[in-house]
Nucleic acid binder design. Structure first.
Lengths: 245, 245
DNA sequence: CGTGCCAGGTGCCAT
DNA sequence: ATGGCACTTGGCACG
């Protein structure tokens, strides 16, 4: 495809706020939070109307280069290439794509007002523990969940029958060393704020690494094997079907 | 576009290991590590020949749904839709796309053997501090960098002239509470392993949050303002913006 | 806006 | 495979 017609076609599609996909042989230069370069190769360039730009290799889940939304696109023809300069003033980033061959340009005015509904997050997990505290222990009364208390952000926070405070840190995957240090930080913060020495710390997760478990018990905390919920409730499923029509 | 021809075109492109881009009106259902659903809307579907599948909304950097590589794609025509089922046996995930309208299908045999070269990572930063330790202090002699010592992962590890051990934790962005707890964990590990009480802990970063700085000093550690190579410091960035006008 | 923290995180490299 | 951790992390919620 010739460079000038390609430039015109892209600029037209940009003007119409279309989403644009370009298959091309190009190199990419990036400068901003870091600096990068990738030499000539066949790639897919995606331009979204919010100013997001993605450059994808033929393989892999993650774009090899990208620019955040609200980026500005400028195109000009150089000797042997289409030079696409993407700048973002907010983040002080620049990405320059030099396309030496353009195989195809596709664009379309996509409209999508729907939002993803997701179940099985850590929030769902802490909600579950809040409403069914016996999953943690018969001797646990939750007080707050997923809240920014004055002691910090605590997943589930409550007390036992002796009145001792209990802090539960949820992880939806394997808990590692970082999870334990996080719990420790919360416990220390509460201890210091309240001027008390006895606070129970619990990690609730479907799994925990060996090192993390050792560090956990060394610090006098405990582990409870709990998996996050991951299914829509009956009501939500019904609602999903209704929304479709 | 009719459903049967669309199915044939996609299957042909899959057979040829092309990268495929489909603009369509579809809903998407996901089940695996969590569960999700998004109702009908215009989206871009990308199929890569390594089995990666991405579903993009017209906006945003992140795909609304996706499947990891080595996923298997099966397509069939239902009453009113093209049903694209993506399964990954390794991760036990399933994604089902129901396309009610197919606006366009584009495919191409992209070849890309190049790899991204990236500068300004945390590794580059620890390399810099290792080769130019005076950036930390005139009284600092590094011994190892980015190595799995028997004390754990330490970014830069060394000693001062009094023979006291020094641990430097690098961050290429603003250091937060987690950075401080990470440093503390490393310092404690070394102290315990060596049976010593005096270990210097230093955070090297271009910036540090107020809370993190307080926790850092509370724990007797210190902060050194250092930017990763190839990245402007906060002040330089500000200056750069001023110079633009 | 910065700060904190989850994510269906992803990717890389180590044991 | 599991684990420990950085990432141009991205994204959101809250002070």
């Amino acid at each position: 495809m010739e460079l000038y017609p390609a430039m015109d076609e892209i600029n037209n599609a940009l003007k119409k706020n279309h989403i644009i996909v370009i298959f091309s042989n190009c190199n990419v230069e990036y400068s901003g939070r870091a600096q990068s370069f990738i030499a000539k190769g066949d790639r897919m360039i995606i331009m979204k109307h919010d100013g997001t730009i993605l450059v994808h290799k033929p393989d892999g889940r993650t774009p090899v280069n990208w620019m955040p939304n609200k980026s500005i696109i400028e195109i000009k023809v150089e000797n042997d290439s289409l030079e696409i300069t993407c700048t973002n003033s907010k983040t002080s980033e620049v990405m320059i794509i030099r396309a030496f061959n353009i195989y195809s340009i596709t664009s379309a005015p996509l409209v999508d007002n729907e939002q993803l509904r997701l179940l099985g997050t850590e929030k769902d997990m802490s909600d579950m523990l809040y409403s069914t505290p016996s999953l943690i222990s018969e001797d646990f009364t939750p007080v707050s969940r997923e809240e920014q208390t004055k002691y910090g952000f605590l997943d589930v926070f409550g007390h036992n029958s002796k009145g001792e405070l209990v802090i539960v840190e949820c992880k939806r995957y394997t808990a590692g060393l970082d999870s334990v240090t996080q719990l420790r930080r919360y416990v220390e913060r509460v201890k210091k704020s309240k001027g008390i020495t006895k606070v129970q710390g619990i990690i609730a997760a479907p799994n925990i690494s060996q090192n993390a478990l050792k560090m956990l018990t060394d610090w006098g905390f405990s582990y409870k094997n709990i998996s996050p919920p991951y299914r829509f409730s009956k009501e939500e499923e019904k609602q999903a079907k209704i929304n479709e029509f």
